[in-house]
Design a protein around this nucleic acid. Structure first.
Lengths: 234, 234
DNA sequence: GGTGTCAATTGATCCCTGTCAACCGACGAA
DNA sequence: TTCGTCGGTTGACAGGGATCAATTGACACC
């Protein structure tokens, strides 16, 4: 179920789910709905900041990016969601924009149905509130990463978080796929695309990772990366 | 309960309530408890990250600072709480440390009593979950501030948030008190104390603010400050 | 094939902010 | 009083990342 465990500092958990969480099965069970799968192309907007929430979605494939824009156009990525994540829970109005970064399949659950399930099933309500707490925890972790860590540490924490996620989902923790573009990673880590790119190069040259494509990272020395991500010394 | 080891922290305010929210009256009403006021000196620790939550507190006077530490000692301030804020709601385990930045009076409500009230009174449960959502929103706003804004913009947004809070509480929006020290502001904004200090000087020289003491800010051109805070250019 | 577009990488340079340090004013103790 | 401490301010300097710019590679389309 979704316990909000206390975290250790910097590693992991960062990435995810401001707005999303993993627990798709249980949520789908508790929310009766027409099992409608929506297919959405890449770079489509699911919703915008301030809009009223109409649906809860379960990500079945693809990836979602949550962001906000400043008046002058600067963009901040608040997080990503991946297959298995439930997105859109929280307050009645969306905190941020949501866009696909890939072709994505979503299972849509009407917000009304979701709300009803919360009221009627206390245990489900607990799960939902635990999910929000989890998102809060992730947001705080995000603050930690971008407020004090160096570019190397930020990227390391991002990669380690994805590795940990793979591990949790039964995939290999030693290689990850980056569905999003560099600009999304940069805006998520509070860096520029150039710095992100250079940092990847530094990691490659240092033998920490290998990359045959820009979207696939193979870990060569995950211990060192993890130490970097934790914001410890080393 | 309030163990006293340690750091100095101290401060207060920003807008936000990572962990806190304003709705003290209603919360106190719904949670039956022995009306016990606790007086806590400055720089005392209320709780530490990872500890199980034992009480919900309503801040009656003083100020609280929420922070986390990295393994190497770097410190991140996640937010502040002021009189009228309810602190400690959220998951069963604390996300971060909480310390007083001033002598503070707190009203303590046992977590058990709080939980019972949530179960027994649906409307109260809604308020509690709205509070968590509010904290989540504040955390995202914090991410925005520290990931993309310049030092000037960060400090401006901090000051404007305090001004807005004053306004909301019926106090003058044109002057604010900073109960926390520079190091707390710095750790909250992802800057150093030197940069914070220099930025205050820049604002003073530019005629945006006036300060007779280091802890009192009088706004001279709040429009410009607000424009800066919004990240809009100017 | 050639061309256009978009994403990623790399290079050169700049500047904002961190770092290290000195200094100042307030306050408390001896 | 003098001394010591603490918090804040200011200065000098340097480094990390941003900025501006060019290059490369992948891919779609004609």
């Amino acid at each position: 179920m979704f316990d909000t465990h206390s975290h250790q500092i910097a590693h992991q958990n960062v990435i995810q789910l401001p707005y999303g969480m993993s627990a798709a099965h249980s949520f789908a069970q508790h929310c009766p709905h027409q099992p409608g799968i929506r297919k959405v192309a890449a770079n489509e907007t699911l919703w915008c900041e301030g809009e009223e929430r109409s649906h809860i979605f379960i990500v079945r494939s693809g990836a979602i990016c949550f962001s906000r824009m400043l008046p002058d156009g600067r963009r901040i990525v608040l997080g990503f969601a991946y297959p298995g994540d439930v997105i859109g829970i929280g307050s009645d109005f969306h905190y941020c924009d949501a866009q696909t970064v890939q072709a994505t399949r979503l299972e849509a659950i009407p917000a009304s149905s979701f709300k009803r399930a919360i009221v009627e099933d206390p245990s489900f309500g607990k799960q939902a509130s635990a999910a929000v707490n989890q998102a809060l925890d992730a947001a705080y972790q995000h603050v930690v990463v971008i407020s004090k860590l160096s570019a190397n540490e930020r990227l390391a924490s991002f990669l380690i978080a994805l590795s940990d996620r793979n591990d949790k989902h039964g995939l290999s923790p030693l290689s990850i796929v980056l569905p999003m573009r560099r600009v999304d990673i940069a805006d998520y880590l509070g860096l520029t695309i150039e710095t992100v790119s250079r940092t990847f190069t530094i990691f490659r040259n240092a033998g920490l990772i290998a990359m045959d494509q820009a979207s696939i990272v193979i870990f060569k020395d995950i211990r060192k990366l993890r130490a970097l991500a934790a914001g410890g010394g080393e």
